[in-house]
């Protein structure tokens, strides 16, 4: 349904009074993946690995440097203004921070009805009100009580519900959820995750779920793609990835998560060194300076993403897995 091919986003790095260009931040550096209809694909990685940039670029909320993104076979980056309007209706995003992604001067009604207005989905006033109250109800808020309030009157979890209602307003086919629960209280997180799950079923949504929290991703996603410094290092079915990670980085990442069970004392792989900067990523495999299995070849040749799982599609970019 969504196919991303060799997507790149470089930011120019400028310095000095003449703003001379001194280099590039390789935020997203040639990633390819696809999201199948009805599935939830998780995009995980640590801060600065480019996962959010990837999400925003796919929606053309920031312009890509290179690459192609096909949505239902049509290239989003070559779309005309008019075609883009359709894409914007069918692709929606839920943002990480429910505090800054809602306009404090708009009521819930204004916020949720805006996409309807923009896309001309409900022309008459009562039609609009009807639709908005339906959406608010679907998101687990009460139309009667909440519709005419302002965002500051709500808690984090409730604000995220407003964000979800807004995303659903245009009846989208694909939703990109960028860290939708990471700024929400632990006891409320489950509500939002359950809500997303229910709505996904009801609206037959496809989802790209961007997160750094591997426990959440395991719960929500069918397949998971792991990113490291602008590159995808592994894509596999959730179960395969968590039980049998093939890339050394995925292995480290999974071993690092503290498990809420004091009886399980897991062996932890600690990493050497620091995350490299995306300005000057290491040559060859980007993980090689920190990898405990690194071989001479890893320093020179960049590994390609290859399938080692047969029909189950387990893609990994590592020289040692051939």
């Amino acid at each position: 349904m969504l196919e991303v091919r060799n997507l790149k986003k470089y930011y120019q790095l400028k310095a000095g009074i003449f703003k001379k260009q001194v280099g590039f931040v390789h935020a997203v550096d040639g990633i390819s993946f696809n999201v199948k209809k009805g599935e939830t694909l998780g995009l995980v990685g640590e801060s600065g690995c480019g996962k959010t940039t990837a999400g925003l670029t796919i929606l053309r909320l920031i312009e890509p440097t290179a690459g192609e993104v096909f949505f239902e076979g049509k290239d989003i980056f070559k779309a005309t203004k008019k075609e883009m309007r359709t894409f914007r209706r069918e692709l929606q995003i839920i943002f990480q921070d429910p505090y800054s992604s809602l306009n404090p001067r708009m009521t819930v009604y204004d916020i949720v009805s805006e996409p309807l207005k923009v896309h001309g989905l409900a022309r008459k006033k009562n039609e609009k009100t009807e639709k908005v109250s339906q959406l608010i109800k679907k998101a687990g808020l009460s139309p009667h009580e909440h519709m005419h309030r302002y965002p500051h009157e709500f808690s984090g979890g409730q604000r995220q519900r407003i964000g979800i209602a807004r995303a659903l307003a245009t009846n989208p086919k694909l939703i990109i959820a960028d860290e939708p629960v990471s700024s929400i209280d632990v006891s409320v997180r489950a509500q939002i995750l359950n809500l997303l799950q229910d709505l996904k079923k009801e609206f037959r949504l496809t989802m790209l779920f961007i997160s750094h929290d591997l426990s959440v991703v395991k719960h929500v996603c069918n397949r998971v793609a792991v990113m490291y410094v602008g590159k995808i290092v592994e894509i596999a079915k959730t179960k395969d990835l968590y039980n049998n990670p093939q890339h050394p980085y995925s292995e480290v990442l999974l071993s690092a998560i503290p498990v809420p069970n004091p009886k399980i004392r897991r062996k932890r792989i600690l990493l050497r060194g620091e995350v490299p900067t995306p300005v000057n990523p290491p040559l060859g495999c980007r993980f090689h300076p920190r990898c405990s299995y690194a071989e001479p070849a890893c320093e020179k040749v960049e590994p390609k993403l290859i399938n080692i799982g047969g029909p189950d599609e387990h893609l990994v970019a590592c020289h040692l897995r051939k």
């Binding site: 006891s187 997180r189 929500v220």
Partner: peptide, 19 residues
């Protein structure tokens, strides 16, 4: 209510309401 690595669960048992 928390999703965990060591337990598989179809659906989380959410706590109703807010803090």
């Amino acid at each position: 209510s928390i999703p965990r690595l060591d337990v598989d669960k179809e659906r989380l048992d959410a706590i109703a309401g807010t803090v």
